[in-house]
Design a protein around this nucleic acid. Sequence first.
DNA 1: CCTTATCTTAAACACGTGTTTTAAACTGTT
DNA 2: AACAGTTTAAAACACGTGTTTAAGATAAGG
Lengths: 235, 235
Amino acid sequence: MAVSRAKLKRQPVAADRTRFRLLQAASAVFADRGYDRATVRDICNRANVNVALINYHFGDKLELYTEVLRGSVKHPDSLQEVHDLFAQQDEPEVLLRKFIRLMLHRMIKRREAPNLHMRLMLHELARPTPAIARIVDESVKPLHDQLCVLLGRILDLPPNDQRTRLCAQSIIGQTIHYAHHMPVIGRLWPELKMTPEQQDMVANHIADFSLSYLKSSREEHRGMNSIRPGRRGAK
Amino acid sequence: MAVSRAKLKRQPVAADRTRFRLLQAASAVFADRGYDRATVRDICNRANVNVALINYHFGDKLELYTEVLRGSVKHPDSLQEVHDLFAQQDEPEVLLRKFIRLMLHRMIKRREAPNLHMRLMLHELARPTPAIARIVDESVKPLHDQLCVLLGRILDLPPNDQRTRLCAQSIIGQTIHYAHHMPVIGRLWPELKMTPEQQDMVANHIADFSLSYLKSSREEHRGMNSIRPGRRGAK
DNA sequence: CCTTATCTTAAACACGTGTTTTAAACTGTT
DNA sequence: AACAGTTTAAAACACGTGTTTAAGATAAGG
């Protein structure tokens, strides 16, 4: 088998090694600094590799970046946990609270290793590159749609209802706010150091804040629409 | 009178003109592109002025920028309306709704003229420069503090209570989300074109979404604390 | 061993950026 | 009108960026 692989891809034994190291280094640097602030020399130094090799192996910086994203989307590390979460059988309200908590944690702890995909995503949201379409379609949208399904269940509305979508944006907005504007928040509120306990506290607040509307809105809506509300989808 | 002015400031008659034009052009370009993406040549072209004059009149690009901010903070155009709003005597709930509506409108209509200060602020939040401290202390914090006072009145809590602050962040987060991530939101929800009507619709949603928690939290809090709640501060 | 294709290296290139230089033009004063 | 101080203009500079070049190193096949 090793022979047949060697036949299929003749040359790559050594080249694959540097390709791999470049991808690895590039992931780290792009996740850390974002596309525009990352430099090819940064990446090559970290990979212990000559500057010309990015262009030799990938064509140019942007293709290296999209290659990193492609790999990141295929193995979306921390994002996988989020999808796993939705597979659980908890009550929707409990699930939403867990979701908010997990997203907040993953967004805040920037420095740790396994958040590559999340950090790349956050940079894309803040400063979109030509790859924004892929990121949204393949990473953000699935997340968003699952959140809408969940909210639809709580609200007793279709996932694509206007009100459902607005609630999704409210929750996403509150959460992402802490990821993008922590320097400013910290200046407005110096006591907030975002220790793990404070992260939980914030996550619980966002959940409480949001569930208040979600629950009352459902009751109001059910009361108006029919006398025996029943479950949506049980036709 | 023209003579006395000429005596007080001897030389500046011509120089002031280009200084002024530079500040004006720089305001527009910085507001449009943010500090790092704005180029001195962009600014000078727009001012019809030689590239060297920025360094002659202001020292360097950063000092020109802080000068723009200084002027922007002194005459914070659109931000003034927000402060005026707080001076009104409406019920807190009504005031909050108006506040959210106004902030959202000012943040969204980026292209129009009188939003200089707001646009500069938004760029600072997204990509802080060394001037972030000034911006937060002199523009964001006053706004934030007034919002906390307002929320404190609704919640029947002190403005610096943890819960009050969390609510402020929830509202700011929801609102700013539409300013910073409209390209992404538009891709997730293509029907949302942010026409004036849709802006109002979103603003009202954010108000409803937030007031639901604020009101229920107040009642719960009042019920727990004392039998005759009364007004806070009337000791 | 020699040839060939592949990979790597050091250096240079092209370009955009903020900044500085140098001399010319302008302005007000005597 | 002549001078000194100030302002402007054109060009060049310094530097960081992504990219390319041309030659050398490495491995594989005949």
